[in-house]
Write a protein that binds this DNA or RNA. Structure first.
Length: 1083
RNA sequence: GCACGGAUAGCUCAGCGGUAGAGCGUCUGUCUUACACACAGAUGGUCGGGGGUUCGAAUCCCUCUCCGUGCACCA
């Protein structure tokens, strides 16, 4: 056995072992080894943000996973702990953008452009991406690093794309113009889950407006957002509200902007709560979700008065335009005051949605986004409800169920650049929806007629006389000619409405200005057709705007035939354009208005609005359909990639051996804060693409808080750096400390004291091992039943209990209970009692004297004790290994426990040593250990405690003489043990001992123990002490007697309880009698 | 507003129908040859308040208060 250093040096040991584990491929999962005899255990890491650094939350989370993984290895399972990182779209882009701005590299992301910025972020990722992984290694995480994945790797990206296309084809993904949560700081839409409500100290502004039809009647309106008044489209009251019912249908003058005080109607809507505020609600459709819904019910336009970055735009009026939203709020209030509209302002507390990432209030904003209707909802909900998948603690199942019941479609598009690009392609033009289209103006068509028949005739005549038929027209957009043939017009006239006929005179101009939007294959396939092109043009007739769609067949001979035409009315836009694709606030400025004025230029977006969903113009597929197609600029929500994590990391969609062996995973360990973001979505994805649940158990950790109960946060500065903790206390200490303070289902109150305690525990372990080593000899493996002392039996029983307790605790994810047991067992039971007691054997028959004595017994008592110690230590190290991998590995080898073991059974590493099992009934019988052996030792220890108590009471701190007056005869070995534990010199055992008056004594299970002090003691003090104890005993006795005297009690109580009470009475009575004797002896 | 979790020794928590527990802290001794990152001993609680069920309640039921969390949310 090599000698252990006097002090443990964790930094060196931890680094050395981790390298060794890596070198020996200890963490590698081998799917081919999985069999019925060797079951799989798998766990996927919740991927930390790639640019993140380790927090205590990660420490907690990953320590738990490591414990589970390491224990599974010891249970003989083939373990896969799959690591990786998350690209964390918005968060990462924010960080990099901010840094680049700080460094003065850019002023705005547009300076680099999409590709440039993404390239910079990749650079950043390469530089900083590995940090958290290295930190996890420091912690001891036993991940299979050869399988490390990143959610933005090429093949992972392919999975995301594939899933998107699949969902799109299933009709679960759609694009829509909706009110979404908009982050004015990150300039992107957010899902509902990314918005956190915060209580806010705001101001409620009350302002009044006069009813135009009833001069003198004023309505007072309460609002917290006066800056959006220019966007108000109505005043709403509840139709049941008698105060205002008569005003419905009348109008008020909107106070802002002052230069455009438009009349807006008073409408009736059930949504208005007439008990709230004044019962009058201003309706601002473009800036409030509820208002938007009201507006839809009443067909009101939505006027957006704000740029995406939160700066008010021109529609807010000259006073507010250009102002940031909070400044504009103050200014708007001032303006109201100036025009005499402001009634009062009062402090008001309300709840406001904040962007989780950027921590700024979000805006409700109408924009076009991609949404997902969740797949596999029912089965996902059921699997948790019916307990097939277990949540720990299970109360989270309720939270999950509640959320799954009220699922809202998921807004999955984000207007940032760092992320999985949406695999949707727009044919040429749709990618540039803001492109201007020339509107061909025509006050009145020369085509005349009383009915459609006459109109057609007139159009035919016009077309023939003006040489349209058979003519080729040059198209400016494509520089190609388009031929109009007779069939073209016939088709157009036959199939479409009046306008199609009326616009014939405009045809030359329309064909010239038409914009090519899509090129698609000819359907059905025809060998002479090369392609079919779709063009759009715009015209205005009689004040109305029309879009004109041309379908042009291109033959292989180069002819372009104008096949047919169509014209449809383009509704005047009530809402803003859908085409504002660049989320950059700056480039948006001045781009609005939302509503094209009669003479304004029309954008392509206006023309193609309703056709976007057809395959001709929009394709959802993995690769670009061709050069004439451009990809949707948006990227996907980060969680849209994370939700595939359990199988996308294992090689899906290939049916890999890894998937076969390790999916579904066994456990998932994560925080309850991402139950909706991640856990719920992974379950749905698991069912949707694997047809199976992704994991069988979910363990939710608590939230780490500081001593004052506050959440850890950067701004509070209350978040200790785990790496510093590791440096000063060791990784094992940090792991043990944090596990000790992490009860199931409750938040964790972090205190560095616990880490210190972990460190102390490591030291204790180290020293206990050293003690064993100092006794000399090799590892003893043979325990002789005949030579077992009561202490030996006791510690073996305690070990049995500890093994059982730790095993069950781990099975039930009660990690803090497991550590508490380990702590109690090793420190109190093993070190404080067993080791101390065993010194009776180890010190008396010392190694030296045994050797000197010629022929030592083949298996002396001393050797047997060492064998028990080795047995206990060997088991203890294994019990501890999942919690404290480094020191246990070091001691496992340092003590020589690995010797003679097969390589895969602990010879190479303790992590493959079998998990301890309690001695079974046969083994206990073999060793002659009975349950009552525990009591024998306990009685001895209690005697010792009482003796020590006497010493302490009388301030004796030297070795001193004790006398034990035993109840029955004691073996000499037991006496020696008591002597050593008591630090008595000597311990006399005398059944006939008669103490001198005033000798302090204590009643013990083994008899009465005396501390003879030869007149040194204060008789009065001793009398006081004994009297005090007697009083206590008497009071207990009285309590029991009172109970036993109560017939109500004795008649109703079960026999077992009655027996207990009667026994108690006897015990107290005996004690009281002896104490009285002692008092009498004191005189 | 709805739901869930918590309130037990100075601190962190266990106990969840039958004599109030652990660790840490505090106090007092001790450098006893594995360990002062230690050893020994002691101190400390009407189990958040009130009601009820029961022979018996920290434990079950009702109610209130306070803390935390999730969901919903009205200007």
């Amino acid at each position: 056995m090599p000698e252990l250093e006097k002090t443990y040096t964790p930094a060196e040991v931890e680094a050395r072992w981790y390298q060794r584990w890596l070198k020996d491929d200890c963490f590698k999962a081998r799917p081919e080894h999985v069999s019925e005899k060797r079951p799989a255990y798998s766990i996927v890491i919740p991927p930390p943000n790639v640019t993140g650094i380790l927090t205590l939350g990660h420490v907690l989370n990953n320590t738990i996973q490591d414990i589970l993984a390491r224990r599974a290895r010891m249970l003989g399972k083939e373990v896969l702990w799959l690591p990786g990182t998350d690209h964390a779209g918005i968060a990462t882009q924010n960080v990099v953008e901010k840094t680049l701005k700080k460094q003065g590299v850019i002023k705005h992301r547009d300076d680099l452009g999409r590709e440039g910025l993404v390239a910079k972020i990749w650079e950043w990722k390469e530089k900083h991406g590995g940090i958290i992984i290295e930190q996890l290694k420091k912690l001891g995480a036993s991940c299979d690093w050869s399988r490390e994945r990143f959610t933005f790797d090429d093949d992972y990206n392919a999975c995301v794309m594939r899933v998107f296309v699949d969902l799109y084809k299933k009709g679960l993904i759609y694009r829509g113009k909706r009110m979404v949560n908009w982050c004015p700081s990150s300039l992107t839409a957010l899902s509902d889950e990314e918005v956190v409500m915060k209580a806010q100290n705001a101001i409620m502004y009350h302002f009044k407006v006069e009813v135009v039809e009833e001069p003198g009647t004023w309505l007072t309106i309460a609002t917290t957002r006066p800056e959006v008044i220019p966007g108000d489209q109505a005043i709403a009251v509840n139709p049941k509200d008698e105060r205002y019912a008569h005003l419905i249908g009348k109008h008020v003058r909107r106070p802002l902007p002052v230069e455009d005080q438009a009349l807006i109607p008073i409408i009736a809507d059930e949504h208005v709560d007439f008990t709230f505020g004044t019962g009058v609600l201003k309706v601002t459709p473009a800036h409030d979700k509820a208002d938007f819904e009201i507006a839809q019910r009443h067909n009101l336009p939505a006027v957006d008065v704000m740029h995406p970055n939160g700066v008010l735009n021109e529609l807010a009026g000259k006073d507010l335009a250009g102002m940031e939203r909070f400044a504009a709020r103050k200014r708007a209030a001032e303006l109201l005051a100036e025009i005499g509209s402001l009634v009062k302002e009062e402090p008001y507390q309300n709840n406001l949605g904040y962007s989780e990432r950027a921590d700024v209030p979000i805006e409700s904003r109408l924009s076009e986004q991609w949404f997902l209707k969740y797949p596999s909802v029912k089965v996902s909900q059921a699997v948790v409800a019916n307990g097939e998948m277990k949540f720990h603690p299970d109360r989270w199942a309720k939270v999950y169920d509640h959320w799954m019941t009220g699922l809202q479609d998921w807004c999955i598009s984000r207007q940032v650049w760092w992320g999985h690009r949406i695999p949707v392609w727009y044919s040429k033009g749709l990618g540039e929806l803001n492109r201007e289209v020339i509107v061909i103006e025509c006050d009145r068509s020369p085509i005349e007629g009383q009915n459609i028949k006459e109109l057609r005739a007139s159009a035919w005549a016009w077309a023939e006389s003006h040489g349209i038929i058979g003519h080729e027209f040059h198209n400016d957009d494509t520089n190609a000619d388009i031929e109009v043939v007779k069939a073209s017009l016939r088709h157009a006239f036959d199939n479409y409405g009046v306008v199609n006929v009326l616009l014939i005179p405009l045809l030359p101009e329309l064909l010239k200005t038409a914009v090519l939007v899509a090129t698609v294959p000819h359907e059905p396939f025809s060998p002479e057709m090369k392609a079919v092109h779709r063009y759009f043009a715009a015209c205005r007739m009689g004040g109305k705007l029309y879009r004109v769609k041309f379908t042009v067949k291109e033959r292989r001979d180069g002819h372009r035939l104008y096949d047919h035409q169509s014209a449809e009315i383009v509704e005047e836009k009530k809402v803003e354009l859908g085409g504002d694709k660049s989320p950059a606030g700056r480039s948006d400025e001045g781009k609005l208005p939302t509503q094209p004025a009669p003479s304004s230029i029309v954008s392509l977006g206006h023309l193609v609005e309703e056709v976007k969903s057809t395959d001709d113009f929009v394709r959802c597929q993995l690769d670009s359909p061709g050069e004439t197609w451009t990809q949707d600029p948006d990227v996907l929500d980060t969680w849209f990639s994370s939700w595939l994590w359990p199988f996308a990391t294992m090689g899906w969609p290939e049916k890999t051996s890894t998937l076969k062996a390790f999916y579904p995973t066994t456990d998932l360990v994560t925080g309850p804060d991402i139950i909706f973001f991640w856990v719920a979505r992974m379950i749905m994805a698991g069912f949707e693409w694997m047809g199976e649940l992704p994991f069988k158990n979910v363990y939710f950790t608590g939230i780490i808080r500081d001593k004052q109960g506050r959440k850890m946060s950067k701004s509070l500065g209350n978040s200790p750096d785990p790496l510093e903790l590791i440096a000063s206390y060791s990784a094992d200490a940090l792991r043990f400390g944090i596990m000790r303070s992490a009860p199931l289902g409750q938040d964790i109150c972090f205190d560095e004291k616990n880490v210190e305690l972990g460190r102390n525990f490591c030291t204790k372990l180290w020293n206990a091992a050293r003690f064993r080593q100092m006794q000399g000899g090799e590892v003893e493996t043979e325990i002789s039943a005949a030579l077992l002392s009561s202490d030996d039996k006791w510690i073996l029983l305690r070990l049995n209990t500890a093994i059982a307790e730790v095993s069950t605790a781990l099975e039930e994810y009660r990690f803090s209970d497991a550590t508490a047991t380990l702590y109690r067992f090793f420190w109190s039971e093993y070190c404080d009692w067993y080791i101390e007691a065993s010194k009776a054997v180890l010190q008396s028959g010392s190694a030296v004297s045994a050797e000197a004595g010629g022929t030592p017994a083949p298996h002396s008592r001393r050797t047997n004790t060492l064998a028990v110690i080795d047995f206990v230590l060997g088991h203890t190290l294994r019990l501890f290994h999942p919690f404290m991998p480094f020191i246990t590995e070091e001691l496992w080898h340092g003590m020589g426990f690995n010797a003679d073991l097969p390589e895969n059974q602990g010879g190479k590493s303790i992590m493959f040593a079998p998990w301890p099992k309690p001695l079974d009934a046969d083994e206990l019988a073999h060793f002659g250990i009975l349950p009552e052996d525990e009591k024998a030792a306990n009685d001895k220890y209690e005697t010792v405690v009482l003796g020590r108590g006497l010493k302490s009471t009388f301030n004796i701190n030297k070795k001193v003489r004790f006398v034990l007056k035993p109840n029955q005869e004691l073996p000499s070995h037991e006496i020696e043990v008591i002597r050593i534990l008591l630090n008595a010199e000597p311990l006399e055992v005398d059944a006939a001992f008669t103490p001198t008056k005033g000798t302090p004594s204590a009643l013990t299970p083994l008899g009465t123990i005396f501390l003879p002090l030869d007149g040194l003691i204060d008789v009065e003090a001793e009398r006081a002490r004994v009297s005090k104890e007697l009083a206590k005993v008497a009071s207990e006795l009285e309590k029991v007697r009172a109970k036993l005297a109560d017939e109500n009690f004795t008649s109703k109580v079960p026999q077992k309880v009655l027996d207990e009470h009667q026994q108690r009475e006897t015990d107290w009575q005996e004690k009281a009698a002896k104490l009285k004797e002692m008092l009498a002896a004191l005189g």
